[in-house]
Design a protein around this nucleic acid. Structure first.
Ligand SMILES: [Zn+2]
Ligand SMILES: [Zn+2]
Ligand SMILES: [Zn+2]
Ligand SMILES: [Zn+2]
Lengths: 153, 153
DNA sequence: CGAAATAATGATATGCTGTATCATTCTTGG
DNA sequence: CCAAGAATGATACAGCATATCATTATTTCG
């Protein structure tokens, strides 16, 4: 069974456990994100579903599906890119906290990580010192991946 | 002389020092950002210039002007909001490094800060451990300002 | 000064991202 | 089967941004 198929099956179970349904079209959109190590836009997913499944989803439906998938914690939105990516922990059963996203500015590959507690604490202290309160430590970090770094060298 | 006027004068000098010109329209757009403690979109600035100066700038021009102002380090773009904000150090003569932006998710007020070196180092270590290289520590942080926090309480 | 070059701005069209609204179809429970 | 609710579709529109070509303003230099 493919990596994507495994993730979709797992997602289907966890949806069911939460009383939600992972319909066919939702699976198609999710698979579009699971296929890719880069984030994809709603309209790119429209194209993907068309090309891959001959399914002509209206953009509105894709946005609704993306909302659903986010509610189910299967997908994250990258605000700085206006794109979406499958959760890296989609096969994990433990609830996952807030992640950070490393985005390669060369090849656009995205990696979801959890930076360590002490760094988050440091960040939070800085925010407090400035008279603000950290609402969410979800960060989208402008980086370069190893491959691109090596290619440049 | 108003706070805004002082900043504009300073900006004009620093542009001149760099061989660039802070034209009238560029001043108008910049003043639209200096007026506000929130970030503003290009189209909001079109409206501002129209209301404030009777100047009907086409959006294209505003975008060009914003690019110019960014090149001159007078303005920052918040990618997660698709909006622009005047640099908090616009009156400083020292070159400023990369900033972080605290964005209140209630009232949208924005504060430009510099988080401390050790936190940045911690962040950088985390990024390296994930097989990436930090390209820029500009962060846009989802936070709540003190006023909004107190208002909620 | 006046022509040529350069910089700045304008006009128009278009593309991408996202939402609002109302209609239709599908699924489910009684 | 039927009613209720969930999911999806259709259409329109708003906001952000860029591409391209035209025009105007400013500078440069003989
Ligand atoms: Zn995740
Ligand atoms: Zn890369
Ligand atoms: Zn700044
Ligand atoms: Zn606030």
């Amino acid at each position: 069974m493919s990596r994507v198929q495994i993730a979709i099956n797992h997602a289907e179970s966890s949806c069911k456990a939460r009383g939600a349904k992972l319909t066919n079209k939702r699976k198609q959109v999710l698979s579009g994100l699971l296929q890719s190590n880069k984030a994809r836009s709603a309209y790119q997913l429209v194209d993907y579903c068309k090309d891959e499944f001959g399914e002509t989803l209206p953009p509105m439906s894709v946005y609704r599906i993306l909302d659903f998938l986010q509610d189910e914690h299967l997908v994250h939105k990258l605000k700085s890119a206006n794109k979406y990516i499958a959760c890296a922990h989609i096969n994990c059963d433990h609830a996952h906290g807030v992640s950070q996203f490393l985005i390669c500015n060369q090849c656009e590959v995205v990696k979801e990580i959890t930076i360590n507690k002490s760094t988050i604490n440091g960040l939070q202290r800085n925010v407090e010192d400035a008279g603000f309160h950290l609402a969410s430590p979800q960060l989208e970090i402008n980086a370069v991946c190893d491959s691109c770094k090596n290619r440049a060298a």
